[in-house]
Amino acid sequence: MDDYILFQPSVKPLHNEDEGDYWFLFRDDKLMVYEKDGKISIPRRKDVLKLNISIYNIQCMGAYFGYNCYCGEFVDILDDEKNKLMDLKTLSKSIEENYYYLASKAKLLLNWLKSNQYCGRCGSKMHMKDSKSERAMVCSMCNNTTWPRTSPAIIVAVTKGDKLLLAHNRQFPNGRYSVIAGFVEYGETLEECVKREVYEEVGIKVRNIKYFGSQPWPFPNSMMIGFTAEYLDGEIKVDGDEIIDANWFTKEEVLRMHNKSISLGSQLIEWFIKTY
């Protein structure tokens, strides 16, 4: 396979079983990783077999560069010092970007599977649909069918001249500021969500909304859709509920505050730094 499409999603394995197949295994929402000489990697089939652990909720995710990818969960205690448990936010700072996104896919898939064990319509037990091409949970009584879903959320870098709008969320650590973000309401366009979220959280209006990029965000099942926008009108007035402080910051101020990461919010801030 060439590098045009790196990951091929699939319900069933696309290749013969191989020692190099990837296994994304979670315990208590933390991913098992393999560490050697200070380098973090994803365990392969040959590594997992050596551990002799019991794995449940096993799902085939698809294939990456000719190797099958699986995800699952386990409860066993790891007695191999080379294998460690790591939360995904920490992982994002320790591993190559494509592997982080694969781990995110695994977490999203397992979250969906665990959240749909019982039918939301009649309460009966759900089971995995037997299909080579369709991933779905089906109710054993009323046939209600549920497919993997993701919750869209916008994240936007708002500029005013040569300054960037940054806000401090109540849940952030002291001193941390970021761009505005929020979930899309049902029946709402992405652009409408950008306008509403910025206005609700900091009281200003924006214009010239432009698409920037997207990123799966498995906390627990979001898709972050990034935008840039320009200030139109109003004075900053934080909502006092979610946002407790916000202000316009110069490039020099942003550089002193910014901690680079793999997140889309970080990418938007870096866009501002490079552009202004």
Rank of each mutant, 00 (worst) to 15 (best):
K89Q: 09
Y64R: 01
W248A: 10
R135P: 03
F219N: 13
L110F: 01
T159G: 02
Y177G: 15
R149H: 02
E253H: 14
R149S: 07
E192C: 11
F227P: 09
D18Q: 12
D162W: 03
L14R: 15
G234C: 01
C71F: 00
L102F: 01
W112K: 08
K210W: 03
L51V: 11
L166G: 12
L14Y: 10
Q267E: 07
A106E: 02
E134R: 15
G20K: 11
K50L: 13
R27M: 08
E235A: 02
K195Y: 12
S10Q: 09
E81C: 15
V138A: 12
F249R: 12
I55R: 02
S104Y: 00
F74E: 04
D79P: 07
A167P: 03
F272L: 06
Y64C: 02
L102G: 00
D87P: 02
M223H: 05
N221D: 09
Q59C: 12
R121E: 13
R45I: 05
M137I: 00
L6E: 06
P13A: 13
I236S: 08
L109A: 08
L88I: 07
K251C: 08
S94G: 07
S263C: 05
K237Q: 08
L88Y: 01
S115F: 03
T159F: 02
M223F: 01
F172R: 15
F227E: 04
Q171Y: 15
I58D: 12
S41L: 03
K50T: 14
Y56A: 03
C69G: 07
C60Y: 04
F74R: 03
L25V: 10
I262G: 00
I77V: 15
L25Y: 03
F65K: 15
Q59E: 11
I269H: 08
N143W: 08
G62R: 03
G175D: 09
F24T: 01
